[in-house]
Nucleic acid binder design. Sequence first.
DNA 1: TCAAAAGTGTTGAGGCTACACCCATGT
DNA 2: ACATGGGTGTAGCCTCAACACTTTTGA
Lengths: 254, 254
Amino acid sequence: MTYIDQLRTYYERVTEECVSGLSLDCVIFGFHDTRLKVLLLKWKDTNEWSLPGGFIYKNESVDTAAGRVLRERTGLDQLFLQQFHLFGDAVRYDIEDTWQRLKMPMKYGINWPDRTISMGYYALVDYTKVMPTADFMSDECCWWDISELPSLLYDHQHIIEVALKTLRLQLNWQPIGLNLMPEKFTIPELQRLYEAVLGRPLDARNFHKKITGLSVLTRLDERRTGGAHKSPYLYQFDTVNYQKALINGNLNFV
Amino acid sequence: MTYIDQLRTYYERVTEECVSGLSLDCVIFGFHDTRLKVLLLKWKDTNEWSLPGGFIYKNESVDTAAGRVLRERTGLDQLFLQQFHLFGDAVRYDIEDTWQRLKMPMKYGINWPDRTISMGYYALVDYTKVMPTADFMSDECCWWDISELPSLLYDHQHIIEVALKTLRLQLNWQPIGLNLMPEKFTIPELQRLYEAVLGRPLDARNFHKKITGLSVLTRLDERRTGGAHKSPYLYQFDTVNYQKALINGNLNFV
DNA sequence: TCAAAAGTGTTGAGGCTACACCCATGT
DNA sequence: ACATGGGTGTAGCCTCAACACTTTTGA
């Protein structure tokens, strides 16, 4: 079976089994090496990248479908996943141009709706736990630095921008740290995350004071060694107090 | 043509001309007489109420469709309208029970999808300018006090709750006052609005100090007379400064 | 004259910002 | 030894919350 046949079969199945005209796109954020990252897929035999996405089975909750897409691309379950915008413009992108960049015959001869509306989700994941996994349409699935994205298909550049804007706005009310950091981390590492999301530096003393003052962290008896400098303490989140601080909107580092 | 025929014709047109399986519901907030209000429709020949909603034409932007629904029910254009949640559970409500309450034969014999996903929008409108207008399916369209809602069809009770929660969260970043108040209003009246949204009383002196300190209001040379008490000054919003205050997130009365 | 709501300032507490030096570690 | 980043405290400012009396108006 050729790749094109596979694709046609896939889209035929989608047409039959999924909600028509509605898709979802996931902006999966990770954090590594002081940088905010996004998980992208490269389409087979092209140099074109896009967000992981998918369709909703006719008897499936949309949120569940988003969780499924996420699980398939990251290997992780029970992730922090949040609706952020419905992309419903009549013309979201240049369809012909897109099919050309994908080197595909338009529509594979099947009855595909003229326009697709897409629900945008963002996810916050622990970079160290993710196993990026390509699907049958892609030959690569990997992390990209948020500030060095490749050219993206569809309106995915726009979708990422909206997701990032939402993330910044929700920083104080969402468990950004809890979900993006590995289990054990140092306070300066957490500060780098906040700086990466906000896009500007924060004062180390004030950050330390604030985050420890909220008692959302538990200091471990371990330190991170290996740097040519004083070894910082490792911390874990105290999830109970973290939830409390979130509810109070106290995790703001403006 | 009987009412049932009209309905069948309508749903046939929707099936043909609209995006399938996706609808939208609008929670239209108004403010009157110290109370937050929602605009509801009563279905013909029943005592069942629901939110105004509609479908999206195949070549229409979803946001535009929401604006259209809103214009048809309020007579107003260019309203403040905001996506807030996609209601996409596989089973959102008891379908059979709903059709029974509507006293309708299910599906009118047409090919209607088994489940509908709905995008929730909320709107903030000037109560005094709205002309509530029923559609052909409803025999009443009117304002209901948010704390004294009737029994609602579908999952509309839930949708209103989510909308209200969103409104509270966004109070500091959205032009709540600007859109819900009439052109001229007094500071105590604006305070009542904030109290209605937040669901708790605010201190008059602190409110006055804060709101005047932001220079988002212009005091007019008029006063509201008629009450058996001191006549309060009338104010208008200074839209330029209002936008600035919103951007800075300064309109918070926590 | 009375009832009802409008208008108005001050004070204390807590949170935020700005700022500089010493310490621990690996090279 | 030295370079690198980690850890730590204080002072001033600003914002917020709490709080009561006088004024105006219509009935």
